[in-house]
């Protein structure tokens, strides 16, 4: 039993970051309909910036904030520079453009920071507390706390603020929001900037566990995408739930089924969920009728 609890607890802590990645992914998708395959690379960019600022002597907390800002900037630049002309084009054009951005970001990272793997210390101690026979470290606690705070703030912002309501309206009909004095273009920019900030945050949070390598972003994009789809594309809460579900599932599968096929088990679960419930776990009704 303690094995089971340990697998679940460790999964929740790891999944919180996937959830943050998925939330950014979802937010960008919700407003623009674009699947951003550069999302993970923006996260890595944020992590590398965190690394540099920390290296210049700033406290880790400040460095992480710099990473968040860098992620937000990258997201905004990408929206203005690359995606804006593509909104009226077929879905695949936007997606492939983000792939192009991902290639560019990876090579920029490699040019600036080199390909040698780098590392960052975690925000809190990784010496675990022992609760019964289950280990849980302050670092994991911080990770979970940050995720809860940020996602609560985000959900509040999407539900209650004018911009958030605009985003949701925009997802439904970008023509109509104009009538209410909201510029869809500004909404797109805001969405991508926030998504980039979330990515940068996730990057800064996950690097103490995995370290920094230039093309690590691809696997982060895939994780974020999977979390967002499982939770229901467009739903922030869904993405967090989806991310945690994937990590827990993977852990349980590696303990009880096979470590090598843990990912396959997680994917199978996602496909089954999609077949039963087209909109994902927490996707809204809008998602079932949205034409893409």
């Amino acid at each position: 039993m303690s094995t089971f609890i340990q697998a679940v607890v460790a999964g929740i802590a790891a999944g919180a970051v996937y959830g943050l990645l998925g939330a950014g992914f979802s937010l960008a998708y919700k407003t623009t309909g674009i699947i951003n395959f550069a999302h993970g690379d923006i996260a890595m960019l944020g992590a590398y910036v965190t690394f540099s600022v920390f290296g210049w002597g700033a406290p880790l907390f400040v460095a992480a904030l710099a990473g968040v800002v860098a992620g937000g900037l990258a997201g905004a630049v990408m929206e203005r520079g690359v995606l804006r002309p593509l909104y009226k084009r077929p879905l695949v054009a936007g997606i492939l453009a983000t792939v192009g951005v991902s290639v560019v970001l990876q090579s920029v990272i490699q040019l600036v920071w080199g390909s040698l793997p780098l590392t960052l210390p975690s925000l809190a101690s990784s010496t675990p507390w022992r609760i019964g026979s289950v280990a849980f470290s302050p670092a994991q606690a911080v990770l979970l706390a940050v995720t809860i705070i940020v996602s609560t703030a985000l959900i509040f912002a999407v539900d209650r603020t004018r911009v958030g309501r605009g985003m949701r309206a925009c997802a439904q009909d970008s023509g109509v929001v104009v009538l209410f004095g909201i510029s869809p273009e500004r909404l797109y920019l805001t969405a991508f900037a926030i998504a980039g900030m979330l990515a940068g945050l996730a990057g800064a949070l996950i690097t103490p566990t995995i370290g920094l390598t230039p093309s690590r972003g691809v696997s982060l994009s895939v994780l974020g995408f999977a979390a967002a789809v499982l939770g229901g594309l467009g739903s922030v809460t869904g993405a967090i739930v989806g991310g945690i579900a994937i990590a827990v599932l993977r852990n349980l599968a590696s303990v009880y089924v096979s470590a090598g096929y843990a990912d396959a088990v997680a994917y199978l679960a996602i496909v089954l969920v999609l077949l039963v419930r087209v909109r994902g776990l927490l996707g809204d009704d809008l998602e079932t009728v949205r034409s893409v």
Partner: peptide, 10 residues
């Protein structure tokens, strides 16, 4: 590409 090894370690 794994980002977490907790399952294997458990």
């Amino acid at each position: 590409a794994d980002t977490d090894y907790s399952g294997q370690i458990v």
